[in-house]
């Protein structure tokens, strides 16, 4: 049985993790653990919509364990819309912006200047009053998170302060840098897109 731990995660993360688990067709039984009513309803509804039958829900303290079995293998994944699984109850989420980095250089015009501007910007993120909540890295910006990067130390400091750092796994693989990642978590389009569409304040650098 595939176990998915959706505790301590803001919407729609529990649904997204569940979707990842069931996308592996070898997982015909899942146990999803959530810790709030909104996630419980969303995960149950998602499983029902995508070929699973919820067998039972067991409560243990504030945690809900959802047990479900695959009953239908023919469902259209393209119909998944993360917005159908909202959080009606406002959740206490960390404050601060989500910053999306799509390039290793900050600005256009000169890459040497852009590299130093990016370094300076990330350095300054440690100094400003309003610390970001999350940093997302895609395409060439994944280079900022690897061994030897001039931005690495400052990113590691941000991570130690509780900033969530997600680094695109596909991009790391494309550039042959997966083994060199030294900060953040290897992530995927679902997590990154989920964050971009769910987080309150997102800026692109």
């Amino acid at each position: 049985m595939k176990r998915v731990d959706g505790r301590n995660l803001a919407c729609p993360k529990p649904v997204i993790l569940t979707k990842e688990a069931i996308s592996d067709e070898s997982n015909n039984q899942v146990e999803v653990i959530v810790d709030n009513a909104a996630a419980l309803e969303n995960v149950k509804r998602f499983l029902t919509n995508f070929g699973f039958e919820v067998e039972k829900v067991e409560q243990s303290g504030k945690d809900h364990h959802i047990f479900a079995n695959r009953i239908n293998t023919t469902h259209d994944e393209s119909k998944f819309d993360v917005n159908e699984y909202p959080c009606p109850v406002p959740q206490a989420t960390p404050k601060g912006k989500t910053i999306f980095f799509n390039n290793e250089f900050l600005g256009k015009g000169d890459d040497k200047l852009g590299a130093l501007l990016m370094k300076a910007f990330i350095y300054t993120l440690n100094e400003v009053d309003n610390q970001p909540k999350r940093l997302l890295f895609m395409n060439s910006s994944v280079r900022l998170c690897i061994e030897g990067s001039i931005t690495l130390e400052n990113l590691q400091t941000l991570e130690k302060k509780g900033v969530d750092i997600l680094v695109c796994g596909t991009c790391l693989d494309f550039f042959g840098l997966t083994e060199k990642l030294k900060v953040g978590k290897i992530s995927n389009m679902y997590d990154i897109a989920g964050s971009l569409t769910a987080d309150q304040d997102v800026i692109t650098i």
Binding site: L116, K119, A120, Y123, T124, I150
Partner: peptide, 8 residues
């Protein structure tokens, strides 16, 4: 050997 970094 002098360790320093560029910052704003």
């Amino acid at each position: 050997k002098i360790i320093c970094e560029i910052i704003p």
